[in-house]
Amino acid sequence: MADALLHIENVRAGYGDAVVIDDIGFSLGEGESLAVLGRNGMGKTTLILTLMGQTNLVAGRMSMRGVRFERSPSNARVAMGLGWAPQERGIFASLTVEENLAVAARAGHWNAARTFELFPSLAERRRNFGNQLSGGEQQMLAIARALMTNPALLLLDEPLEGLAPIIVEEMTRTIRKLAAEGVGFILVEQHTQLALGLTRQAIILERGRIVFKGASQELIDDPSVLVRYVGLRGERGLVPAAPR
């Protein structure tokens, strides 16, 4: 599997001495999508942060297109093709919308003009500072900023959290559009049905370990695994799952 877009195995990581995720392994091909599901505190965000090199990696291998990166700093991973939209959004408050995009820019398909096309409401606020944006706008900016790095794989950490239903719909359409354009992504989401509708593959984390790994469709067809590990909490059903 050396030529997989992303391949990780036996990953154990956490913060300080505390191990939060253990024995994590999966592979993703170019343009593929993966939903990371699980209850709160089961290690979903820790997995994303570990991919970005922002946790303490105790053991495991991680490679991108065959190149190992588990010892590389965050910024080098971005250069290798990981695009991160953090859970807390991480918008730079003292930078304008334009500047938030400019500092992340890397040569490629995605530039400011194209991301503004994708998120027209950001274009209207291009001269506003990061701390003058609504939650939805901040989320759009976090994704737009990640796109500016021209990633091979987007890491979306709860991009729909705390957004109004209408914005959730808009965001879902955008993620679908990105997927159709061949951008691969890992989606951490509490809106389970939504996440399954957007992705081809899924894993469920329970206390830092993978308890399910398979096709998203499997979980849609047979929700019993979901009910056991995620419960019905996440199924708000704001938008029906995409037809396949």
């Binding site: 970005m52 922002q54 700093p73 965050s74 910024n75 971005v78 250069a79 991160w84 953090p86 991480g90 730079f92 408050a93 003292s94 930078l95 500047e99 938030n100 500092v103 992340a104 890397r106 990061g130 900023r145 990640a146 500016m148 790095t149």
Partner: peptide, 14 residues
């Protein structure tokens, strides 16, 4: 300014 605002995120956007 980005690095002053949030060093970890600055690293994480490259």
């Amino acid at each position: 300014r980005a690095a002053v605002d949030d060093r970890r995120v600055a690293l994480g956007v490259g």
